[in-house]
Design a protein around this nucleic acid. Structure first.
Lengths: 326, 326
DNA sequence: CTGTTAGCGCGTTCAA
DNA sequence: TTGAACGCGCTAACAG
């Protein structure tokens, strides 16, 4: 930086000022500095900057799994906006493990991030303590309804589950089941299952919740359907924990000669890309994962500029998308 | 850190030494320091450490899109291993834009990363210059065959395309087409298409390459198939730029009453999770995205410890997985 | 608008 | 094995 200052015939602190607020420097000095930076190929050392300022333009993001299309979409849209404003994303997977989450939070902590984004409202007690004591914003995403540490952006999975049941009942279905994968770890899928069962019960209809211990997959669908039919051979309406499972269900039904939706109506969750173009197309619940990412990015940018200060709970909602399968 | 030193009755530099090489400190001092760290909830400031040491345990990773399951898988497996060794991943999407890639590389540069991971062998000239001059390892992934900047981990997409054509020809197919999405931006998909056409030509069989400008999707498949059939109504073998498009093709064929594989054989690329369980199941090419991530993580760890020094080109290969569709 | 000054929290000599 | 000194490259007052 002092090399740049020498080349531009100004002091290092003027260069520093120019880098942080170009408008605070005279046009002449600014031009000279810009030229020197270009000529010398100067790249600022953000560590030194961060150390001096005690904050960095880094946002820590922790998700259960990047292989999950929901989080990939959210992180993607969030990162696109943040990077446009000079922020970077430091990223980690927990694989649905609380201990791994704690490690990642701790690691991110030591970079004095501008904000920390976590998935869901559930964390290890130590993680919560660490985050509560932190002096930067914490955003919990993809879940609403509990007590957030600071900010929350997402929607109620319980309500999404209710909406699925409501839809099937409206379609005249009377013997329901919820097919869920990995629900012992995925709290949000479990919340949807519970909402589904609660709504069905409120309408006097029994709804079985069928579990599969492995991650959501098209493969899981075959086992889930077999178990659901064993419990109730006259099943006529099914919700799945997400569209991947629903896709598998479509394939499994076609193999078994079960007609969708004539014999069994299917409603998924996620509105993944293929859902509109499968055969039959998939009735599902769209959660707006990209909007979650955008809202979080805007929130963090506003917070960094001191524009907002109050803890927010932003409901990005969801909609039922009715298509061929239910 | 000096608080810890006070609490443990040693000097700060002893604490520093303990943190970096616990074995270099006496058992008594070590125990006292460990206790003090625990009691005070001390979290090291990695910025200060990085500044002093002129390097950090950060790895910069730049991919075209995290929504792409291939990269999500690679990043996921890479991050799992790296984080286990105290390394963090700083991550960015380019959206297949060279300029965005340059920005991300520049941003990552200023954190003195332990390594930089990029996707593919093609970059803006300025990006290449920046990276060549850098004094830390550069890994280019998911492509082999060109001239890497430093290290490369991946496989030849040209060969993968040839393998797809070879498979269809072996199955007795004589009128081929390659259906590709976004190939003007996705060089690797284009390489597969070219390999496909080259192999077909070598065997005296014509193969049409059909382009779709939008990203790979099940939706794209309908348009692609329509255009391919317009060019050759007697088409009997098709390769797609990936399994998503192949999935869409299965649906579109079932809508049109085209039998797969009887009328048209289909081979995809990627071996995504659903491919084994679709109906018919999908013949495809498996690229081992998780292995790419693991190899890169190991390479970076070895490099960081000075265990390897030579520029490596690691071929993770691919296999043709024969299933129902071809 | 520009330059001066004093750290940010730690790693790395080196001497003890 | 430990401790003192020094500096990594920059930001943030402040004074000019």
């Amino acid at each position: 930086m002092s090399d740049v200052a020498d080349a531009a015939n100004v002091s290092p602190s003027t260069v520093s000022l120019y880098l942080r607020r170009p408008s605070a420097v005279s046009r002449k000095a600014g031009a000279a500095i810009a030229g020197a930076i270009e000529a010398l190929g100067y790249v600022p050392n953000l560590m030194a900057g961060g150390l001096a300022a005690a904050r960095t333009r880094v946002v820590g993001v922790v998700v259960p799994s990047m292989r999950n299309a929901f989080f990939a979409e959210t992180v993607s849209s969030m990162q696109a906006i943040l990077s446009r404003h000079g922020f970077q994303v430091m990223f980690g997977n927990t694989d649905y493990n609380d201990e791994a989450e704690l490690q990642l939070v701790r690691a991110n902590l030591s970079w004095s991030p501008s904000a920390m984004v976590l998935t869901g409202l559930h964390h290890a007690p130590l993680t919560r303590d660490l985050l509560r004591g932190a002096d930067y914003p914490v955003v919990e995403m993809w879940e609403l309804g509990g007590e957030p540490i600071d900010h929350a952006v997402g929607f109620s999975h319980h309500e999404a589950g209710r909406a699925a049941a409501r839809h099937l009942v409206r379609k005249g279905r009377k013997r329901l089941a919820f097919l869920g994968a990995r629900m012992h770890e995925d709290r949000r899928a479990m919340q949807r299952a519970e909402g589904f069962a609660a709504e069905a019960k409120a309408r006097g209809i029994a709804a079985e919740i069928v579990h599969h211990i492995k991650p959501a997959s098209t493969e899981a669908a075959a086992a889930l359907l077999a178990r659901a039919l064993a419990k109730d051979p006259h099943l006529d309406g099914v919700a799945t924990s997400n569209d991947i499972v629903a896709l598998g269900l479509l394939f499994e039904c076609s193999r078994r000669g079960v007609a969708v939706p004539a014999d069994i109506a299917v409603i998924g969750f996620g509105d993944l890309e293929f859902s509109a173009f499968s055969n039959p197309s998939l009735t599902t619940i769209r959660p707006f994962g990209d909007v979650i990412g955008e809202e979080i990015a805007r929130l963090i940018l506003d917070l960094a500029e001191g524009k907002r200060r109050d803890a927010a709970a932003i409901n990005t909602g969801f909609v039922v998308v009715e298509r061929g399968s239910a």
